[in-house]
């Protein structure tokens, strides 16, 4: 018993030490695309990956989608929030963007995009909060709260079916590069990068999990995830992955997460927006 406890303690202490090491080394990495971006080859084509997916899951996903997505029922709450007056200026989203936000149709397909006002990348979630603070004089939503998720989900769902076309050129380029470097950077105690799993080993099995191909990672958030039993954002998923990698987890809507969201969404360029998603 004591031996076991001491062993556990040793592991814990060990992981703490290496966490500290990781943090120290992270500071040294300059965020410019260069030698840090590992040359990794895609393990298999997307068609092969789909075949593999069918072998593992069969028609389970289609059957699940047929029954409907629990997150769809929250869209009405998002709609109510868009029409609701909030803040000191007596405005609602609908005051500028039309009733039910109709003028926002197709807009979310261009997000995340470069915003000169913040000299960085704005995601839909961040933009909604900036709009509330700046234009409406209202309290920003807390990230990952129910209200924040449903309004983001509703605004994005207005673009459903519109092909994603995020810009990665011009002023957005340096941020795209930062996101890409982060995606390929080895980090955490396990020395994984996002890419080593989702590019090099996409389509392989990690125990009973099929490692997913990154082609559709950017097109369906916020999504209802069965594992969570609720709706969550893409950045919550980032944090989940980083926890499994035993790596440092940036905060919601931090600069690096927004850059990463831009990079991942740009991979899905050309694919239609499908919000809310439904995932296992």
């Amino acid at each position: 018993m004591t031996v076991a406890m001491a062993a556990v303690l040793a592991v814990v202490v060990g992981s703490l030490i290496s966490c500290a090491e990781t943090r120290a080394s992270e500071k040294k990495v300059s965020l410019t695309p260069g030698p840090e971006v590992e040359e990794l080859e895609q393990s298999m084509s997307y068609e092969e990956y789909q075949k593999r997916y069918k072998e593992v899951f069969g028609t389970a996903t289609e059957e699940m989608a047929e029954d409907g997505n629990p997150a769809e029922l929250a869209l009405d709450d998002g709609l109510d929030l868009v029409n609701a007056v909030a803040g000191s200026k007596g405005l609602s989203c609908a005051s500028c963007h039309g009733k039910d936000g109709v003028k926002l149709k197709g807009i979310a397909a261009t997000y995340p995009k470069y915003d000169p006002a913040i000299k960085g990348i704005a995601t839909v979630a961040l933009q909604i909060n900036r709009c509330r603070e700046g234009n409406m004089g209202a309290e920003p939503f807390k990230y990952e709260s129910y209200d924040q998720l449903v309004i983001t989900m509703y605004v994005k769902s207005l673009s459903n079916g519109v092909p994603i076309h995020v810009s990665i050129d011009g002023p957005a380029r340096p941020f795209y590069d930062k996101g890409k470097v982060y995606y390929f950077k080895r980090q955490g105690q396990f020395n994984f990068s996002c890419a080593v799993c989702h590019v090099k080993y996409a389509g392989y099995m990690a125990r009973t999990n099929l490692i997913s191909n990154n082609k559709h990672h950017g097109d369906h958030w916020p999504a209802y995830r069965l594992k969570w039993g609720k709706t969550g954002s893409m950045q919550r998923r980032f944090r989940g992955c980083l926890k499994n990698m035993r790596a440092e987890r940036p905060a919601f809507q931090s600069e690096i997460f927004r850059d990463l969201e831009l990079y991942l969404t740009s991979i899905a360029n050309g694919e239609p927006v499908q919000v809310p998603g439904l995932r296992m």
């Binding site: 769809e72 029922l73 929250a74 009405d76 709450d77 129910y146 039993g229 609720k230 709706t231």
Partner: peptide, 12 residues
């Protein structure tokens, strides 16, 4: 999900 018990959404 909204918080609390017994909050209902029906969609047609």
């Amino acid at each position: 999900m909204p918080k609390g018990v017994g909050k209902i959404r029906i969609r047609l």
